[in-house]
Amino acid sequence: MSFAEQQQSDLSRKDILADLCAQFPDEVSGAVSTRPGRAWAEVSKEALHRVVEFLLGCDDKAYLSTITAVDAQEEFQVLYHFWAGGTEVTLRVKLDHNNPVVPTIMDLAPGANFYEREIHDLMGIEVTGRGELKRLIVTDDWPEGNHPLRKDWKGLPGGEDDG
């Protein structure tokens, strides 16, 4: 066996997506694997906590990579990227554009702390169940309701816009 094959066989790549669908037949939808090692699935925000718990418990290396918030015009999407079972699993939570709220997952992954504060600062996603979301990236005196990464943000009121 060549070195490359040896290393390839060492990859403990489980079919995490199948496990996920079997475990949560109703909560998980739109599960696709775009290529080996990448998996995408959509989760309702009510089921998020349970699905995350399952993913982080599926092997002893699973961890939260990061959280991305996307302004998809008609809705907000919050993407939770996990490295679990040898696959980068992305959970997509779709949120109402007028009321973007997700539950916290800090109790499961303490490292989510900064990522949740980041999406709150920049995209205006509220995170419930973790107390006050302190400013992390923008200044303490940043005006409420200004979220720079939103598509409709036009700069601070009265601030200099150097484009």
Binding site: L122, V138, T139, P148, L149, G155, L156, G159, D161
Partner: peptide, 9 residues
């Protein structure tokens, strides 16, 4: 740090 526009205030 990479994301937001810096507005001098």
């Amino acid at each position: 740090d990479r994301m937001i526009k810096i507005v001098r205030q």
